[in-house]
Design a protein around this nucleic acid. Structure first.
Length: 207
DNA sequence: AACGCGTCCAACCGCTGTCCA
DNA sequence: ATGGACAGCGGTTGGACGCGT
């Protein structure tokens, strides 16, 4: 006998589904994904709708052609943050966490492995000037990245306390991390800079 | 032309954190 | 205090596609 529960649609999205989803989100905004799925008449779960919107339909999304500058930035941020794709994506306007994750897995991780094996073959590192990519990728600095991960988690916690409390949260986070030379607020404050300008990240990598 | 293989990327899955009744 | 619903994240998968033989 047929189940009373309708089978949920999975797999690739059609243009018609995209249109319906965008229509509903235009009316009620990107929240309450379960409701959106129902209102749009899509036989999909809210989770799937959210993903489609975040990774494909959202306005101002850049697709493909990751520039050298962006690649360099991804490498540096990955060194700082590890696999925190959403945080890395937050520093790359128009890029999604999924895209960056895919790019890392298909391009950059291989690059890294290649470099590591090259390094093993050539033995100890030379004193020559390194490219930015080499600087960012060649060494795993466990202790440092561990500290930074902690800091990022702290920042996440503050963020969740709501925008209206942001100033208070910033004060709190700053006082929490006085013991290390890493200003989380500076790190996440994009207001006065071009995110693709690498100056800001140099400050953190060089401290 | 046909086949096999590797690559890429969209989408799913499972888990964790947060919110709210 | 607690449990269910929901949001968000990172890991993984599978299908489409391109390329070499």
């Amino acid at each position: 006998m047929a189940s009373m529960k309708r089978e949920v649609n999975k797999g690739a999205w059609t243009a018609e589904e995209d249109r319906k989803l965008a229509e509903v989100i235009a009316i009620q905004g990107p929240k309450k994904w379960k409701t959106i799925a129902v209102k749009a008449g899509l036989n999909r779960c809210g989770k799937s709708c959210r993903l489609r919107w975040m990774n494909y339909l959202r306005p101002n999304i850049k697709r493909g052609n990751i520039s050298d500058q962006e690649e360099d930035l991804i490498l540096r941020l990955h060194k700082l943050l590890g696999n925190r794709w959403s945080l890395i994506a937050g520093r790359l306007p128009g890029r999604t966490d999924n895209e960056i994750k895919n790019y890392w897995n298909s391009h950059l991780s291989k690059k890294m492995n290649k470099k590591k094996s090259e390094k093993k073959q050539t033995g100890t590192s030379s004193t020559r000037e390194k490219t930015s990519v080499e600087k960012s990728g060649e060494v795993e600095e466990e202790e440092t990245s561990g500290e930074i991960n902690k800091m990022v988690i702290m920042k996440d916690e503050n963020k969740s306390s709501g925008d209206e409390n942001e100033e208070q949260g910033q004060e709190e986070s700053s006082s929490n991390i006085n013991h290390i030379n890493f200003n989380v607020d500076e790190f996440f404050d994009f207001s006065n800079e071009d995110p693709l300008n690498l100056e800001w990240i140099n400050r953190f990598l060089e401290t």
